[in-house]
Design a protein around this nucleic acid. Sequence first.
DNA 1: GAACGGATTTTCT
DNA 2: GAAAATCCGTTCC
Length: 215
Amino acid sequence: MTLIPRDFFARLSVQVAPDLLGCVLEHQTADGLVAVQLTEVEAYTGATDPASHAYRGKTKRNAVMFGPPGHAYVYFTYGMYFCVNLVCAADGSASAVLLRAGAIVEGEELAGARRTRGVAAVSHRDLARGPARLCQALDIDRSQDGTDVCVAGSPLRVRWPDAGTPARSAEKKIATGPRVGVSSAADVPWRFWVEGDPTVSVYRAHVPRRKPVTP
DNA sequence: GAACGGATTTTCT
DNA sequence: GAAAATCCGTTCC
């Protein structure tokens, strides 16, 4: 098991994002270990990216994005869900990669239990298919915000793929396209995924939320 | 297979 | 007051 060095993240998020495909995110909790191999990510920057949380400057929520690379930025969204990012670029520069989807490679039973919570069973491909689902399967929430993922003692960390699972080799093609759920800067192809992988979430163009009916 | 509404916090206007 | 880096159940093709 080899963790990814911090230098890897000390680049622009657009460069880090495609290299992250195939890497494995692990979360060690009291219940056990769940690991997910990434198949879909999106890059975000700061001041020059209108779709980024950091576009309008530093807030209490996005402060971690402005910090040093190799840390996790976890945010709560739509009143119900968490999404996790890995912070890139130098300290002081807001930049991150959103982890959108992946395949569970360890702790699948535990991940399934977290995802279903007693309801219908979830198929293997759907366990971490989507950013909020990925967090749910790994039991990630705001208490992991700011966690250093580059140290072995951390409960949340990122490592290179196993030797036998070359997801990011010449065999696998990487596709790019517009980011999901983003209304501004939709022309920037900063979404990266492993072509043909069943765990990649289906693309949905941004649909503006219909305004509430006020009779 | 696609489209819509609901849940509900953080942030900005 | 409204929109957002979402998911899920329901409804209608």
